[in-house]
């Protein structure tokens, strides 16, 4: 079963890689019709990826959140899944795949370098709060990644308008939503991501109290998730009260995704704490 799971994982990673290449080619060479193939490749990839995650879930008896390999794999899955679902309904955001798919491919690549050993879930993690906490963590990353992707597209658009790109690129980007729409859509996704992040932090605090008798202990992962929450809180305040739209807001989102990525993936590697004690590399 382990070998089949690995084959499915590699297959999924390959299709995500192909999809990422297609997205890049479609933007660089202005092939709008290729975007459809990029989304199709991502969709084909998510099928073996789902199979791989399902097999692992059955064998381990728990969801994909115990080891760093599982974390990277499941975050990539949620990012692709949320992107495909939203892109199916809202065609305007399909170009955000230019950021979402390559990032997911990188996550899969990092996950492939980590141990695929299966660990059983300790008794202290047997709780429904785990589903809420981990589920919303993944939705947070997926939503904010799409929002950041749209922000990057905004910046590309802006660059074209300032005459720093070719006429062909300008025409290509002109077929997609205008800058104001990209900016607004990015805001929507980040707002949803902020809500999910708040639920994740709240669920974690309630669960921590039930398990350890304290809702907050400034554990490094807790601290960094709060830092990410404050950073996106600053984005929303600047947006709503200081008129930060467009370019400034987009650059802030590009900076903020690194904070979120570090708090999601990096902290567990660097710091020892309760979370990293459970998540084995």
């Amino acid at each position: 079963m382990g070998q089949l799971e690995w084959i499915l994982y590699l297959t999924a990673s390959s299709f995500y890689g192909i999809s990422a290449v297609i997205y890049v080619i479609s933007v660089v060479f202005k092939k709008e019709e290729w975007l459809r193939y990029g989304a199709l490749a991502a969709f084909v990839g998510i099928l073996p990826h789902s199979g791989s995650l399902y097999m692992r879930w059955v064998e381990s008896g728990h969801g994909p959140y115990m080891t760093m390999h599982e974390v990277f794999s499941s975050y990539a899955w949620v990012s692709i899944a949320v992107f495909l679902i939203v892109a199916l309904r809202v065609e305007r955001i399909r170009l955000a795949g230019l950021v979402v798919v390559p990032v997911s491919f990188i996550l899969m690549g990092v996950g492939a370098t980590l141990s695929m050993d299966i660990y059983s879930i300790p008794a202290s993690l047997s709780s429904y709060w785990l589903i809420a906490h981990v589920g919303f963590a993944k939705l947070t990353f997926g939503g904010i990644l799409i929002g950041t992707g749209l922000a990057v597209l905004y910046l590309l658009n802006e660059r074209q308008e300032k005459g720093r790109g070719s006429e062909g690129m300008k025409q290509f980007l002109g077929r997609f939503p205008n800058k104001e729409t990209l900016d607004d859509l990015s805001y929507q996704f980040v707002s949803a991501g902020f809500l999910f992040l708040s639920v994740m932090i709240g669920a974690g605090a309630i669960w921590a109290y039930q398990t350890w008798g304290r809702y907050w202990a400034w554990d490094p992962i807790e601290t960094w998730s709060l830092i990410a929450w404050f950073v996106y809180g600053i984005y929303l305040h600047l947006r709503m009260n200081a008129g930060w739209k467009g370019k400034k807001a987009a650059w802030l989102l590009v900076f903020a995704i690194f904070i979120l990525a570090f708090s999601t993936f990096g902290v567990g590697f660097i710091y020892s704490g309760l979370h990293s004690a459970y998540m084995t590399p």
Partner: peptide
């Protein structure tokens, strides 16, 4: 003031980590 205070909280939290 809100923005400046949030930035300060972030900086203190980063130091704390």
């Amino acid at each position: 003031l809100t923005i400046y205070l949030l930035i300060l909280v972030i900086l203190v939290s980063v130091l704390g980590s």
